[in-house]
Amino acid sequence: MVKKAENIIVGISIGDLNGIGPEVVLKTFEDNRMLELCTPVIFANIKIVSFLKKNLSLDASLHGIDDLSQIVVGKINVLNVWKEGVNIDYGKNDEVVGKYAIKSFQSATKALKEGLVDVLVTAPINKYNIQSEDFKFPGHTDYLGQELEGDALMLMIHDKLRVGLLTDHIPVNEVSNALTEELLFKKVETVIDALEKDFGVVKPKVALLGLNPHSGDNGVIGDEEEKIIKPAVKKMFDSGKMVFGPYSSDSFFGSTQYEKYDAILAMYHDQGLIPFKTLSFGKGVNYTAGLSKIRTSPDHGTAYEIAGKGEASYESFREAVYSAMDIFKKRNEFLELIKKPLKVR
């Protein structure tokens, strides 16, 4: 049975307390209509979240809890992940604050893994100040890939625009060595599976971008397209998958060619993120596809330069909440459908 929207428990990691994360979270649920759509649970500390709410002059009804069994529908639940106070200094890169961001994230991930929350929406972190002996991951995605079953893939979504990344948080000079036929097969399979299960797309069409300028110009500018990408695309297409490319990335988006496909797979981070963020106008969502559980996040960072000023737009975070709920329902509908045997007349 598909869960009713208002009963979907949305776990929220608070992100960097010195950034705009807490502001966009509270602004999202300041609108009581959101509480009719889902039940949020912020993993943090009620005193700190209350302080931030007051400091930002926001009107949000908070409900502190010490256990997830105490969740109240219609309230913004704040789970006390820690008891001690934390010094808030807006806009400052602080290792101590980074540790609390990870406490929140790991606690929320554990709850998601155990089924105590239905979906996870993560507020922005600072990838520099979260590093420690206990957390050596470049970001949310890699940790989730370790903790949850499946093959994590960063998929940026906005309306019908979906851009996945073959490689994400690695240096540009390592992309070519990371590019293999096996990796292409695996990531394309993850994209297709997500399109079918999480977005309800039948027989999805996926476009691959080339690695080099002009997609290699038939081997004149690099040979990765000729040696790896083109043969992989042919094998996948011959096996029945609607996979096309590689396309030259400099004209693919500007010519609106991307509109012909259900998803695009970029070879590296900025190749996919620059056109995506240009087209999504701050309303995009980062979805971690390929996992056993659902996680989304806004498509922006901590924005230290405007933290604490009340200027942050919450549109992307709100869209992340909407997307998490939509994907949760779509996936449940898909799982229900495949359980039912087809009727033979």
Results as ranks from 00 to 15, higher is better:
161 L>A: 07
210 G>W: 05
172 V>Y: 14
174 E>V: 08
193 D>E: 11
158 H>C: 15
186 K>R: 15
159 D>Q: 15
198 D>K: 10
168 D>T: 14
172 V>T: 06
230 K>M: 10
181 E>Y: 12
232 A>C: 04
237 F>W: 11
228 I>C: 09
202 V>C: 12
219 G>W: 04
236 M>P: 10
174 E>Q: 14
231 P>R: 05
226 E>W: 03
230 K>N: 09
210 G>P: 04
229 I>G: 02
190 T>F: 06
185 F>M: 01
221 I>L: 09
181 E>C: 05
219 G>V: 04
221 I>D: 00
165 L>H: 04
183 L>D: 07
208 L>S: 01
237 F>L: 12
172 V>R: 09
197 K>T: 03
220 V>Y: 10
191 V>P: 09
212 N>H: 06
207 A>H: 00
207 A>I: 02
201 V>I: 15
182 E>T: 13
224 E>M: 11
232 A>K: 00
189 E>F: 09
227 K>V: 11
193 D>F: 11
200 G>W: 08
226 E>K: 06
205 K>H: 13
214 H>E: 01
200 G>R: 10
171 P>I: 09
214 H>I: 07
217 D>T: 08
216 G>M: 02
164 G>K: 01
167 T>C: 07
234 K>E: 13
212 N>D: 02
200 G>N: 06
231 P>C: 08
200 G>M: 12
224 E>I: 07
177 N>I: 12
216 G>R: 00
240 G>V: 00
217 D>I: 09
194 A>Y: 12
217 D>M: 14
238 D>S: 10
167 T>Q: 02
193 D>N: 13
206 V>P: 01
205 K>F: 04
174 E>P: 07
176 S>R: 12
234 K>D: 10
169 H>Q: 08
221 I>N: 00
222 G>P: 01
220 V>E: 13
233 V>Y: 05
236 M>S: 01
213 P>R: 01
196 E>L: 07
175 V>Q: 00
198 D>W: 10
190 T>E: 06
191 V>T: 08
165 L>M: 04
195 L>P: 02
158 H>T: 13
217 D>G: 05
227 K>Q: 12
158 H>Q: 13
163 V>T: 01
204 P>M: 01
182 E>P: 07
199 F>M: 11
170 I>K: 09
227 K>D: 11
204 P>E: 05
169 H>R: 04
233 V>D: 00
